[in-house]
Design a protein around this nucleic acid. Structure first.
Length: 291
DNA sequence: GCTTAACCTGGACGC
DNA sequence: GCGTCCAGGTTAAGC
């Protein structure tokens, strides 16, 4: 395997790839993480201050640097957050090396459409089914075929209702086809172009897509568009915000008003890095709920 | 402007 | 075994 020097920046693959921001990563018994990113199968392992990598087809070094955001100064972000909140400082220590990813925005959008009222294992399973049915073959290794995430053109061209039964997507299947069609209808490079506009503009464009609400839009902003201030508010985040910041937040459902209150609370405390804070707190809550 | 039911499915849980 | 609840939401109708 080739290696990349992390130059003193932390990276923990278990935390980064297993914290629920991406759905296509698995860990082998030998400790190597593998998953399909865009048009390559990637294998990763961290030892000391080096990240060892291999891609199929080869030549994916730049893809890995970009996907893992290896040029970011994570130490500076963690210091800034830790100075603002002692609880976050504890989580930065506890989850040392958890990073945000820079995923492909089209894949992120379509993946999170599958996440509505769903559980992480079922989302992952559904996406693998979709990739094997409609994605292009990336490589074959030890008799196992690996497929890219399906292109929106392919999903949009399917008959209505087909996706509902595949991967047990249920009502999310028709949403997926509908969102894929709207991506196709936009000008080429539209989603990727949202990296170059302010967060508020990107979020507004995303929620204008039918089938995309504020939560999915924030997931896409945070996990694929470099909008580190985005705060996806799901049931976990609502509960932890109630526990930590908003004791009077009694609502059990996430209405628009509740969503805004939670986002404002995060933004007020953690500013431009509210999304990083959200990810630390979300993961803590995820472990708590699994315990 | 806010709340609520409906939308699929399967695992967890209580009885 | 069966019923109920809930899971990384969104939409449209009703108030």
């Amino acid at each position: 395997m080739d290696s990349i020097d992390l130059k003193g920046q932390p990276l923990d693959l278990d935390l980064t790839l297993g914290c629920g921001q991406a759905f296509r990563w698995r860990k082998r018994e030998d400790g190597v993480w593998y998953g399909v990113v865009r048009d390559r199968l990637i294998e990763l392992q961290v030892e000391g201050n080096l990240v060892y990598w291999r891609t199929y087809p080869d030549g994916g070094r730049e893809l890995i640097v970009d996907y893992l955001r290896l040029t970011d100064d994570v130490n500076a972000a963690n210091r800034w957050l830790s100075e603002r909140d002692p609880h976050i400082a504890q989580l930065v220590e506890r989850f040392h090396g958890m990073r945000l990813l820079r995923q492909d925005p089209t894949e992120a959008l379509l993946s999170f459409v599958c996440s509505a009222a769903n559980s992480i294992p079922r989302i992952s399973a559904a996406i693998e089914v979709l990739a094997s049915l409609y994605g292009e073959l990336v490589c074959e290794k030890r008799g196992v075929c690996y497929y890219a995430f399906p292109k929106p053109e392919r999903l949009a061209a399917l008959e209505p209702g087909v996706l509902n039964v595949q991967g047990s997507l249920g009502f999310r299947g028709e949403n997926l086809r509908m969102v894929a069609q709207q991506i196709v209808d936009q000008s080429e490079g539209w989603l990727l172009g949202l990296r170059n506009v302010p967060y508020a503009c990107a979020h507004a464009e995303l929620v204008a897509v039918r089938g995309v609400g504020p939560k999915i839009a924030d997931c896409v902003c945070l996990f694929s568009l470099d909008k580190d201030e985005a705060v996806p508010v799901d049931t976990h985040v609502r509960q932890l915000a109630h526990r930590l910041f908003l004791p009077d937040l009694k609502a059990k459902s996430i209405t628009n008003a509740v969503y805004r209150r939670v986002v404002d609370a995060f933004r007020e405390r953690y500013g431009e890095l509210a999304g990083w804070a959200q990810q630390y707190l979300f993961y803590e809550d995820l472990l708590r709920s699994r315990a």
